[in-house]
Each structure stands twice: as structure tokens, then as C-alpha cells.
Amino acid sequence: MSEPLVYTFLVDGDNFTSAGEASVKMKKNLRMLAIAPDIIRRVAIAMYEGEINMVIHAGGGTATVSVHNDKIEIVLEDKGPGIADVELAMREGFSTAPETIRNLGFGAGMGLPNMKRNTDSMTIESTVGVGTRITMTVNL
């Protein structure tokens, strides 16, 4: 397999109920590719946290997952408000999620740190008023 397998998902920003659908589908795809269960779980958690973030903060976006021979790359892109202070956003417990989101069980300020913890690399490119692009990789 020299060419990566690429999966693209639209993440609907208007519907909190459907948030996570892309991660569920991707999880199934990875199972069919016979990827190791612990790798699948790490990809699923990182992607799901990212999806939830895009729905909460950015009005949705796209998720592109590429399965290479040696790694899985997850790219999350949105045209949301951007992250003003990435370092602050990465701090555990820091959250700008509104109370309504906390009542739904999210917004504890664990999302970004948890994405980093579950992946082997993570870069955040964000411009206020333009959007955010997060690239994560999990080594195989």
C-alpha cells in the first residue's frame, strides 16, 4: 500500500446529537483494515474530541483521515473563530465552552490535552477570525 487510504467527513456544526458520527464511521473503517484495537481507540478518542470541539466552537468543519503504511493522520479543519492563545487552550481545565455545553457533559477543558495525549504528534494552526487546522498523527 503505497498510496494512503483517505477518508473525508463533513462535521455538521448545527447538531450536537450527530457530533461524533464521523469518528464512529472512521472507527469501523479502521476495524475493517485490521488496525490494532489500541491504535483504533486512540484515533477514535482524538478525532471524537476534535469533532466535539468543532461543533461546540466552530460551527462544524471537515475531518480528513489518511491511513499510511506507517501512520494514521487526522486533519481537522474549520472556519470558526480561531484560537487566540493556543498555549492557554492546551492547558488542562481551561475551557471557553458555555454552560449549556457543560450541562451536556463536555467543556471540562480536557479536549485538546486529551487529543495530544492520544496521538504521537499534534500541531495547531489557528488564525483568529479565519479558522483552525489541527493535524494529528498516530504511528502504526
Binding site: T17, A19, G20, G105
Partner: peptide
């Protein structure tokens, strides 16, 4: 075990196997 009731509870459980 949870007292929270919305679809993301089931999704979270699914993500965590």
C-alpha cells in the same frame, strides 16, 4: 454509570470500547 442523558453518552462509551 451516569446520570447524564444524551446521545453523546452512548458515543463516548463507543469510543472507549
Amino acid at each position: 454509570l451516569t446520570g447524564l442523558v444524551n446521545s453523546q453518552v452512548i458515543r463516548t462509551a463507543e469510543m472507549m470500547d
